[in-house]
């Protein structure tokens, strides 16, 4: 049919989104307490001289890279979960994955079991995410009906919420409690290359696991039985997606705290251009996620949280939730007929 024309338009979209991500990354390098011009920012980035060099390379570059990588990971994780569960409302945060990862990572930090830049923190986060996503896919099971999926997700999210509340409750000192509470809100402030280094290997593993199955998500549009008859190994793909989402989300939460809704919004936004094909959504959704989170991280630096104390920023997780939740409600409103149908 018109597959060549379509491949061309997909490539153009990917190129356009990539250009937007790069442009936002440059803006991100310019944004912050010290105002830098684009020229100063780029000079600081490339020659590393003087105060600009330190600000851009040591403070803003790791932060920007983390925003891009975490956004891409959430975008891809959302697209993959939606493909696996055949459900446009699937999103790691709705299933309690970041919340569960927070329990693991926050527990590690709160009780001083590991330093914030130790590999133990992402590993604990990944373990938490693995439990929640694995439990969800196991409960949602073969039919993966919308009602069961969302109810199970709600249960996991609430349970994980109770877990973080417990950690706050039992925090050794009020300072520790405040620190955990702030960390839970999600932020990329003051993240260093050490944070980047502990997360990146897990991100890459997550992208590989989730991206390799793109074709299978498309076959799943016919339902699990038909997909299996087409040669899709359902147990293997379920396992790969669960582990892929857990690796990505767990590592992201371990370095940046809880950031939600990018996984819901990013795939939805790119569908207007690539259509509903769950395979074609993956790469654009990752780039859209990168753009969204980078833009949100620029916004928290530009919006003064407290005019009297310019150093306090809005938390990134707060901003993505403030934008994401109304978006989610709008989607439920639009899909309500489908939701009512599947509830019966």
């Amino acid at each position: 049919m018109n597959s060549n024309a379509r491949t061309g338009s997909d490539l153009r979209l990917v190129a356009a989104l990539a250009a937007i991500v790069v442009a936002l990354a440059v803006v991100s390098l310019m944004s912050g307490a010290a105002n830098l011009t684009p020229r100063q920012a780029l000079a600081g980035l490339f020659n590393g001289q003087g105060a600009e060099g330190i600000i851009v390379r040591e403070i803003r570059l790791p932060r920007t890279l983390l925003a891009v990588l975490i956004g891409a990971t959430f975008g891809l994780a959302g697209a993959a979960l939606q493909g696996l569960l055949r459900n446009p409302l699937a999103e790691p945060a709705l299933f309690g994955a970041p919340q569960a990862a927070s329990v693991g990572a926050a527990g590690m930090i709160a009780y001083g079991l590991a330093g914030a830049t130790s590999f133990a923190v992402p590993l604990a986060g990944i373990a938490g995410a693995l439990l929640s996503v694995g439990g969800l896919v196991a409960i949602a099971g073969r039919r993966a009906s919308l009602t069961v999926t969302l109810l199970a997700g709600l249960a996991f999210a609430s349970f994980a919420g109770a877990g973080t509340a417990l950690i706050l409750n039992l925090a050794p000192t009020p300072y520790a409690a405040l620190e955990i509470a702030f960390w839970l809100l999600g932020s990329l402030e003051d993240r260093s290359f050490d944070h980047l280094m502990i997360a990146v290997p897990f991100f890459i593993a997550s992208w590989i696991l989730l991206g390799l199955n793109a074709r299978s998500y498309r076959a799943l549009t016919l339902g699990e039985d038909a997909a299996a008859s087409l040669g899709v190994d359902l147990n293997r793909i379920r396992m790969m997606v669960v582990i892929g989402v857990a690796l990505g989300v767990g590592a992201a939460v371990a370095v940046a705290g809880s950031i939600g809704f990018i996984g819901l919004v990013a795939p939805h936004l790119v569908r207007r251009w690539v259509g509903s094909d769950p395979a074609r959504v993956c790469l654009p959704a990752a780039l859209m996620g990168a753009a969204l989170l980078t833009a949100a991280d620029i916004a928290v630096r530009l919006i003064p949280a407290n005019p009297n104390a310019t150093s306090i920023e809005l938390k990134l997780g707060v901003v993505t939730a403030l934008i994401g939740v109304p978006f989610f409600l709008a989607m439920i409103f639009r899909e309500r007929r489908l939701l009512e149908g599947s509830a019966s």
């Binding site: 049919m1 055949r86 498309r218 799943l220 549009t221 016919l222 339902g223 039985d225 038909a226 769950p278």
Partner: peptide
């Protein structure tokens, strides 16, 4: 080739 009951299509693919 296997054609299951019900002709399910989860996404509005062409």
């Amino acid at each position: 080739a296997y054609l299951p009951q019900g002709n399910v299509f989860h996404w509005p693919l062409p």
